[in-house]
């Protein structure tokens, strides 16, 4: 599988990366070589194999429904790039 510049632009858009036009070809080549490596997987037929997403095949433990966290807004917002009136600020969102 060889990725074309437009594929790279689409992926970068999905991943919200402002890819420089100057490096698109380089990324296309790098990503294509990785995909080539990955395609070795097709050697084995896995049609009857259940996917394994957690190595231990364990099940979820549940938490009791109780409030354990208190207000730490000041501490959390001290490391934020832009806050005012307790709100995180971003360029105007148009809906």
């Amino acid at each position: 599988m060889s990725l074309k510049p437009d594929d790279v632009r689409n992926i970068a858009q999905l991943a919200r990366l402002h890819i420089d036009e100057a490096v698109i070809d380089e990324y296309a080549a790098d990503l294509s070589s990785i995909l080539e490596l990955v395609e070795q997987m097709n050697r084995v037929d896995t049609s009857d194999v259940a996917p394994l997403s957690n190595p231990l095949d364990a099940t979820q433990r549940l938490r009791d429904d109780s409030v354990s966290e208190s207000d730490e807004r000041d501490k959390f917002q001290a490391i934020a790039p832009d806050v005012a009136d307790g709100l995180y600020r971003v360029p105007k969102v148009i809906e």
């Binding site: 832009d82 709100l87 600020r89 360029p91 105007k92 969102v93 809906e95």
Partner: peptide, 12 residues
């Protein structure tokens, strides 16, 4: 998102 608090920005 709060849109009416700031002139140029939205608040989250």
């Amino acid at each position: 998102s709060v849109h009416d608090r700031f002139a140029e920005q939205s608040g989250i």
